[in-house]
Amino acid sequence: MKTPAKKRTAAELAAAVLWCALTLGTDRLFFRYDWRTPAFFVYKALFLVLAFGLVHGAVTLVQKLRAGDKFARRWVAWTLPYLAVNLVILLIVWPGIWGNDDLAVLYLARTLQPNSWQHFLTSGAFILSLMFVPMPGGVVLVQNLLISGIVGCFAATAQDLAEKRLTRPVRPAWFALVYLPFLLPPVLMHTQQPFRTTWSTWTELFLVFMLVAMYLRGTKLNKKELAAIVMLGTLAASWRSECVYYLAAIPVLLALLCARRLLRPLAVHDMRQPPGPHYKIWEGKRVPNGIYIQTEYHGKLIRKIVCNGDERWFIGSNCAVTFLSMDDCMAAIDRL
């Protein structure tokens, strides 16, 4: 029996609040802050948001694995081996490879103070990581988990795109080649270093990966993907001054997406189509009085039908159950 979405969200929020309350005790293992300062409430609020996201993500992942979602299974299958390699190396060099600048950030993090030289984002990443794992090595451990998840996403996406775009099937073992650049000794050692460059480089790399993957996928962007692009681009541009060009690149990118009609709402309507009984040209053919515009979301096809100006969305081929918008359709898929 499936739990209703609202009850599940409430349970996840309650778990996040409980986790945040527990940190009031575990923080004593590392922090020496004054809880009456504004910084305390700011970081606890951020921790609550991250804790809720982590709990929600874990529950969603388990549901997808039980439902047999291909991408979720591939992501786990590719993430765990690379994570195992990183954890073995971290165990050898525990608590990580630290430099003087990193130790300065760590020292100020104990009292929730930012380090301006290494950027306040680095201090924020340190403080929030230490609230999850309250020991100096906790920063590097959280860093290893995030990087391993990103590399697993690279491999899973490559396998997913190859399956959809290539006519001949490719053996899954070939996608282990994605590991090669990330198994080079300099990369593995860099993963154990809590430098600002480590956090900013992987943020930038993940942003570029998302853009390339979305381009190759060829389907329309949704609100979550657009928000992820803007957020990652802002972080990449802010974390290091060398990446400030992203502030100019993001508007140009959005303009290109609009021109290619991959960004909604411009992705839905073709304004060059003259009015008449035919709503849109689809693959070179005029569709009389209606059209199916399809995209893909979590492995499910979403189609749109337009009939006499009335628009409805449905999942797969089940046109008996329709939705008023694509967002409602995506929400229904999330509840599956």
Rank of each mutant, 00 (worst) to 15 (best):
F314V: 04
Y292C: 07
R312A: 06
P288Y: 07
V287T: 12
W282H: 11
S325R: 02
S241M: 03
A248R: 03
H298N: 08
D270T: 06
R260L: 10
P274V: 07
P277G: 14
L247I: 06
P277A: 12
P277W: 07
R272E: 06
R260K: 12
R261V: 03
A249I: 01
D310S: 13
C307V: 09
G316Q: 05
P274I: 01
I293Q: 14
E242C: 00
K304M: 13
W282A: 15
D310G: 09
L324A: 14
V287C: 13
T322S: 07
Q273H: 11
I291F: 13
H269T: 09
P288M: 03
E283M: 12
P274Y: 09
H269P: 09
Y246M: 01
D270F: 08
G284M: 01
G309C: 02
V287P: 11
L247R: 04
A255H: 10
E296Q: 07
V321I: 14
E283P: 07
P275R: 03
R240P: 00
V244M: 04
A249N: 04
E311Q: 08
E283H: 15
W282Q: 15
L324M: 06
K285E: 09
I305K: 11
L254C: 02
K280F: 14
I293E: 10
A255Y: 14
I315S: 04
P275G: 02
Y279H: 10
V306Q: 09
G276K: 00
C243H: 10
E283A: 15
L262W: 15
V321T: 14
L256I: 09
H278A: 12
P265N: 03
V287G: 08
L256F: 10
R312W: 05
T295Y: 05
V244P: 07
V287K: 13
L301A: 05
L301G: 03
V287I: 08
V252M: 07
V306G: 04
K280W: 15
P275N: 09
